[in-house]
Write a protein that binds this DNA or RNA. Sequence first.
DNA 1: CTGTTAGCGCCTTCAC
DNA 2: GTGAAGGCGCTAACAG
Lengths: 331, 331
Amino acid sequence: MATIKDVSKHAGVSPATVSRVLNGSELVVEKTRVKVMAAVEALGYRPNTLARAMASGRSGIVGMVVPEMCSPIHARLLGEAEALFRQHKIQLIGASGHCDPAQEQEAIEFLLQCRCDALILMVEAIDDGYLQQLAKRQANVVLINRTLAGFDAQCVTLDNVGGSQTATAHLIANGHQRIGYISGPLAKQDARDRRSGFEAALAQHGLTAEPDWFVEGDFTETGGYEGMSELASAQLSAIFCGNDEMAFGALAYCREHNIAVPEQVSIMGFDDLHFARYTFPALTTMDFPAGAMAIAATRHLLRTCYQIDIPAQPEMAYKPSLVVRDSVQPR
Amino acid sequence: MATIKDVSKHAGVSPATVSRVLNGSELVVEKTRVKVMAAVEALGYRPNTLARAMASGRSGIVGMVVPEMCSPIHARLLGEAEALFRQHKIQLIGASGHCDPAQEQEAIEFLLQCRCDALILMVEAIDDGYLQQLAKRQANVVLINRTLAGFDAQCVTLDNVGGSQTATAHLIANGHQRIGYISGPLAKQDARDRRSGFEAALAQHGLTAEPDWFVEGDFTETGGYEGMSELASAQLSAIFCGNDEMAFGALAYCREHNIAVPEQVSIMGFDDLHFARYTFPALTTMDFPAGAMAIAATRHLLRTCYQIDIPAQPEMAYKPSLVVRDSVQPR
DNA sequence: CTGTTAGCGCCTTCAC
DNA sequence: GTGAAGGCGCTAACAG
């Protein structure tokens, strides 16, 4: 593969000049630039990103850690960020943390070794202390769905508590009083937040959270299915699931056991996965604007780390909005 | 950030020795190794992947191009490959080609500039000539879902024709004779293959493909929905959709228009997306073993490119298998 | 076993 | 405007 030296020989100039042309320096006379470009064409030369990064101290690489690359919501985050970064010739590299502190840390260290210019982290298991240390080593860090003392400007957050309250209020407004809750794993902050929003809304309307109507799931369809099976005998009029995937599982359980949704029981999800509109009945849920959040994180970095001039300051705090479909009906 | 030189000074040895220790060379006496490791610890030293790549001519990076990072099947491919590569300390970087020749080429060039050791390509729009050229520049290329003359050993394929035949045969075995087909965009090879498998199976059973019962969709839910609307009046007893997403759309249409599935019309999908089991009725479909295929591609590269000793030669040619659920019933 | 010497391909001062 | 020289951090011969 041709190097900058080959090009310089072919064009009869010095490597430095080739470098200037390639980097758009204005200090090159038109005639030379043409000569150089011709040589580049002729040799099919491609600059070596690695060498460029070494010499300039800037890799043009951004690392991103998500819990699971193949979960729909995380894939969306990755996809949106990648597309936008690539428009600016920046490479996004993704790694998964699997909600495990060791694996999250390993992923981050891995990315750091690649000398990423910046990091976008959606990590849930790793402790604050580590992240605080990290911020000292690498200033360009954006956190998704997590807040950290002293880093407000670098956190793209979703108001899980508020979203959950809105959802619960919608249930209550529809006349539901006996509302069950299938939670995500309480080891996760967002699961805790969504739960507390639920309970806050209940309290606000003079209802109390019955421990028997609560089950801790795992954010998967299977967890939702099993959660529903535990709640089935409690004569509840509505079930709020901590995410859509569990709602899908709950719906599957109901169908298999001839529990009519929404006639016998209303079901509410959270996330508004693409698929939510294709369940039967179509799922009423809260919208998690993952795409917008990924773009916000990306734009923030484009501005602060790459000094690319993007008009407006991206919104960093997001609120889920209610998506009304068919799985919740008035009681 | 500490460099190998800092470590060598701190340990009182040469940089080369530090390098040896870090790379597990056996030519280092235990005492030195301990000294070095202590220095590494003390300084919190992390080798610079970029520099290492430059010096060794091996980046430890594999690039992967998929059509869309956020499509479920492609996210799965990425996720599985990433997980397996990372076990071997190899970084996978993903890019999306969006089924557009220019974008696919751009993605590949981008990856090439990062000096990836190998490439896993799921590209559909780019022409054979380009890939053949590419194979000359970079020997370690694995193609997913595409065959290329002279590169059989590096293609992980799915038998779309055969899978489609199996599916169609299942429909026919269930007494269906008036079978509609909602196809993927015929610009894509897999869409064409699936269609021709369908028609071959029809012919094999003495049936002919009615042009009026065929509609070209776009592999999305919306496309399936619209396709179904076109076919709704044709009195068909079964509809075969080119992929699950279109089947989801078709199911949605039926539900909205009170067409009972499978009583009035059976619906068959293709891919077996995770969600297929959560539709109503649960979707009968063909399994696209994306995870296994990603792992096959990864293992192939681990063997051929990284000389990592993995017991068995991975299977490179996959056949979809029938997944019977509830959306297809005997006529 | 360990240190020394060269680069890997590029960018970036500094002179000219 | 352009060229020469040095160095980014590391590995890979080659000596010893």
